[in-house]
Design a protein around this nucleic acid. Structure first.
Lengths: 155, 155
DNA sequence: CCTCCTATGTCAGGACTTTGACATCACTCA
DNA sequence: TGAGTGATGTCAAAGTCCTGACATAGGAGG
């Protein structure tokens, strides 16, 4: 066979997707550890920064974990003083979470570290390719997650 | 800001990567359950089909899990009669695993299901874009996993 | 008004994965 | 030959996450 054929797993989208995700995860894990955050916690902070007042269940969906896992994350962040949750639900059972000032500061530095990693990734390919990849990833995900009938990204 | 900007997480490569991977994972999980396989087990079968005789540690690296996890997977597959491992190591401590006939058959049907899912993903974008995405994912992963000094893809 | 239904938060249990450690085996080098 | 190094398999313990289940709160429909 000639160069670059290699009919193995390297030609499978799923495998390369997992590989890239594993590499990113490991890098993020290492970088965030230095800031006292886990990946799940960081994602939670990002979601809250983008959409203040999200409930535990909404955060869980946004982070692709279960409510139970996100609940643990949220408790940890609350006990660290990075997020606040009203002791009582203003409407229904949902407790809208918000970033504290400390949470915003922590997020800022953590985000810088993560963005640096992402740029190290996307820097490996021409800018236009990176932009298209972003779009394509979204389309592929959308092609597989129609079972979800209620997403919050109506805009 | 005008339409489509949405400076949120949707513009972050890491998030979209995780989203796509989560969607794929969920779809594979569902599909493989019908064939009595977990995702980890399926990946293990694929690796062994591509490279018969891989050791537990090599399989672990290929599947992005620890040796311990892969060991559990391997035991499960062995007890199901899908793979065989020599009772004694022919060289060193590595026990080269191989697919049985049943393993190959199981893999064949499982692979068809998984490939169908992947095609449902890649079908969401033009063929050339999909091909480039595959390459780009590999480059991005490579940009983040240099810490590994010894990979088996010498060819 | 009452009932059904959905959604949320929470608790208990189990499954899976990882971290840490240890013994074994082959290779290298003095 | 013999110590040192690296890799592998395995065991034990901890951590993490998920599955299942329950009680509560709000809205839809009779």
């Amino acid at each position: 066979m000639h160069a670059g054929q290699e009919a193995g797993l390297s030609r499978r989208v799923g495998y390369e997707l997992k590989r890239a995700q594993a590499a990113l995860r490991a890098a993020m894990d290492t970088a965030l550890r230095g800031h006292g955050l886990t990946v799940a916690q960081y994602v939670c902070l990002e979601l809250l920064d983008q959409s203040p007042g999200l409930s535990n269940a909404e955060l869980a969906r946004g982070a692709f974990v279960t409510r139970q896992s996100m609940n643990v994350v949220l408790r940890g962040l609350a006990s660290s003083g990075l997020v606040t949750r009203p002791p009582q639900a203003p409407h229904g059972r949902a407790l809208p979470a918000r970033l504290t000032a400390a949470g915003q500061q922590r997020l800022a530095v953590a985000r810088a570290a993560v963005i640096a990693i992402e740029q190290r990734m996307t820097g490996a390919l021409p800018p236009q390719r990176a932009a298209r990849l972003l779009v394509d990833l979204g389309r592929m995900a959308q092609a597989l997650e129609p079972p979800q009938h209620n997403r919050r990204d109506s805009a």
